[in-house]
Design a protein around this nucleic acid. Structure first.
Lengths: 221, 221
DNA sequence: CAAGAACCGGAGATGGTGCCTCTACTTGGT
DNA sequence: ACCAAGTAGAGGCACCATCTCCGGTTCTTG
């Protein structure tokens, strides 16, 4: 992966140590934004990478730029997921799989969730990627409805809501039982079927009362 | 409603104007916390009441105290709702009604949502009220399961999750379509039935694509 | 109708936070 | 061995929320 400093600017490559640190920063940003969300400080990210803040600012002009650089690729992953899902045969199963996989991607990355559901962060690239996903998701939903799997009154615009809802469950329980969202999503999906049979088996046991309490203590609005 | 300044402190009543302002503050707090959540400033509340900050601090020693005073009664309302629901005949219907009503109460009041799901705000009274609700909700859930309406793998501890999820939908869309949460909750409830029939009719039309965009622009993580 | 206690207003003290800059020092590359 | 490139991290700056303080106002009581 060669670095480009702008359009048609093949400037001299970074010094070896600089390039190494650049990667360290990206990696650290991934971890810290993932765990603490976009509110994390560049200071935090720098220290978590074992570097000084100055080093980060030398490489990325601002927090915005770092965020943009970080999440471009992850957003692409989700778009690709949708594209792939459109090729599957069983339309309902494709919808379900896409939902599970895309939320799986979110689940470990609070920053990604925030960037997906708010317009206040990324700029060009992020917006583009979001735009690309709209028709894909629309198709996915319409196909699943046409096939009789997905309830007819579901709308593609319900997808962000669904992500929002499961996202909040992730946030609420992440400190206590990071996989509990699977339980929530399973129930939600049961409610989306056009011809529901028996309730599906839940992939995760419920919280205990003490865990609820702990979750409430960790969670901040 | 006579004011008490502490345990066994029948001190002289407030001056008339002071008492009036005290009410103004409470009312203003209700509105501002409701709209902006507990992060709202006491300055905001004071100005929205047409008063100076000093006046507020004269009456309530700290923000915490004001919050506690504000939400005690509202929490009680929810507890009462559960108590009432336990008297109903049809256990599943009682569960459904309780859920709709309690979230209805939440829906217009962001502060209430935050206080219910986080332990970081209220103190004694709020905690008591929460504790009172645990057995009530447990009964409500167990009854609905025993009656064969609610899926058997549902747990009372899923209730806060449910509130969390719908709460996030409320927050996400409140600026755009404040009643959209009804749509979400309806789908969720469809997923909670032990013997689902056809999907229920959704009580609210979906968002438009432009509305999704607007919601994303207003929402902040 | 005074007199004085109770009350009001809101500027600003205090403490905290995050973004980013600046410079003396270190390191890699030739 | 030299110096351009890179680094560390203290601190500047701007912002924000809580709460205090006191000169001025308003209510109540004798």
């Amino acid at each position: 992966m060669t670095r480009d400093t702008g359009p048609a600017a093949p400037a001299r490559p970074l010094r070896r140590d600089a390039e190494l640190n650049r990667r360290r920063i990206l990696q650290s940003a991934r971890e810290v934004f993932g765990r603490r969300g976009l509110e994390a400080t560049l200071d935090d990210i720098a220290h978590h990478a074992g570097l000084g803040v100055g080093t980060v600012y030398r490489r990325f002009p601002s927090k915005e730029h770092l965020v943009e650089a970080m999440f471009a690729e992850r957003m692409e992953e989700i778009g690709d997921l949708a594209e792939e899902a459109l090729k599957a045969e069983d339309a309902w199963q494709a919808f379900v799989d896409f939902t599970w996989k895309s939320i799986e991607l979110h689940s470990g990355d609070r920053g990604l969730r925030e960037i997906m559901l708010s317009n206040k962060f990324g700029h060009e690239h992020v917006a583009e990627e979001k735009a690309r996903m709209v028709p894909l998701i629309t198709q996915l939903v319409e196909r699943a409805k046409a096939a009789g799997g997905l309830r007819a009154d579901f709308s593609p615009t319900d997808i962000p809501l669904l992500h929002m809802m499961v996202g909040s469950a992730i946030e609420f329980t992440s400190a206590v039982e990071p996989d509990l969202w699977r339980r929530c999503l399973a129930m939600l999906l049961d409610g989306l079927r056009a011809q529901p049979g028996k309730p599906s088996q839940l992939p995760h046991p419920p919280l205990g009362v003490d865990e609820v309490d702990e979750a409430m203590s960790c969670w901040r609005p």
